[in-house]
């Protein structure tokens, strides 16, 4: 028992140093822009950079649309699978896990070849179309996380009974999904949404290959040309990720705990 506690502490301390030293180092580095003193100069420069504002704003908008697309795609499907076609579950689950197996760079490569300006569906022929394709690409990347979050949320409510109750009261499908199911899985959907946000906001590969002015390629550009701003940007990114995860954790406290449905 004593030995195991010793090893537990040793593991914990070694692990903590591996994770905290880079964060401390990055923060320290980001403060060194002015010679001979610590300052927030690098942060000031970053925030004042119009390209930072533009690309960050662009990525936020893209993330919001990605979340909307993901919700529209996943909620009705997960609901319908639970309610009417449970035998399709393995197939749908397999599909939602595919983006973890097929690298993002391969998916976007496929898009570039399939949806070029000469194709029947020329997404890439216009700027708007490319934006849409980027949002679609991000939605596929977020699919595994979004689907799991929503499916877990649906598990805690009795989908079939809620649906029947609503139908008896005369509700149509749009009303059922929009006003009964969605509010009940809202916490789960929001968790998925913030996770999506964290994944999408600094994404580099797809944005860069589709040539969109997103935050990820901007980060890469600054990294290649500047010394101290990248460290400041890393700290900012870490803070954003931390923020998203904190929101998810706070949200999970409000999630319905009861599992009256064993499935």
């Amino acid at each position: 028992m004593k030995v195991s506690r010793f090893w537990a502490w040793a593991t914990f301390i070694v692990g903590a140093s591996y994770f905290f030293i880079p964060l401390i180092a990055t923060f320290e580095f980001s403060l060194r822009m002015k010679r001979g003193e610590y300052s927030f100069e690098a942060y000031r420069v970053v925030f004042a950079d119009p390209r930072f504002q533009a690309t960050f704003g662009y990525s936020v908008v893209v993330a919001i649309f990605t979340i909307l697309l993901g919700v529209l795609l996943v909620v009705p499907t997960a609901y319908w699978i639970r309610l009417r076609m449970p035998w399709l579950r393995p197939i749908v689950e397999f599909i939602t896990l595919l983006p973890l197996i097929i690298p993002a760079i391969v998916i976007v490569f496929g898009y570039i070849r399939m949806y070029g300006s000469n194709s029947p569906l020329p997404f890439l022929a216009s700027v708007r179309g490319t934006d849409v394709l980027l949002i679609i690409g991000y939605a596929t990347l977020a699919l595994p996380y979004m689907y799991r979050a929503v499916d877990t949320g649906l598990r805690t409510i009795d989908v079939a009974t809620l649906t029947e109750a609503a139908q008896i009261l005369g509700a149509g499908w749009v009303t059922i999904i929009g006003r009964i199911i969605l509010p009940n899985v809202l916490i789960a959907v929001l968790s998925g949404a913030f996770l999506t946000f964290a994944i999408v906001i600094g994404e580099f590969t797809m944005a860069s290959l589709l040539n969109r002015p997103a935050f990820g390629p901007y980060l890469q550009l600054i990294g290649a040309n500047r010394a101290y701003e990248p460290a400041a940007l890393a700290v900012i990114s870490f803070a954003i990720t931390w923020g998203c995860m904190s929101v998810i954790q706070v949200l999970s406290r409000f999630a319905p705990k009861s599992a009256n449905n064993p499935n």
């Binding site: 990055t26 600094g202 980060l219 460290a231 870490f238």
Partner: peptide, 14 residues
């Protein structure tokens, strides 16, 4: 979830 470009910055700074 902290991957991608910022992670590279952090390790360069370390």
């Amino acid at each position: 979830n902290f991957a991608g470009v910022p992670l590279a910055f952090a390790f360069l700074a370390t």
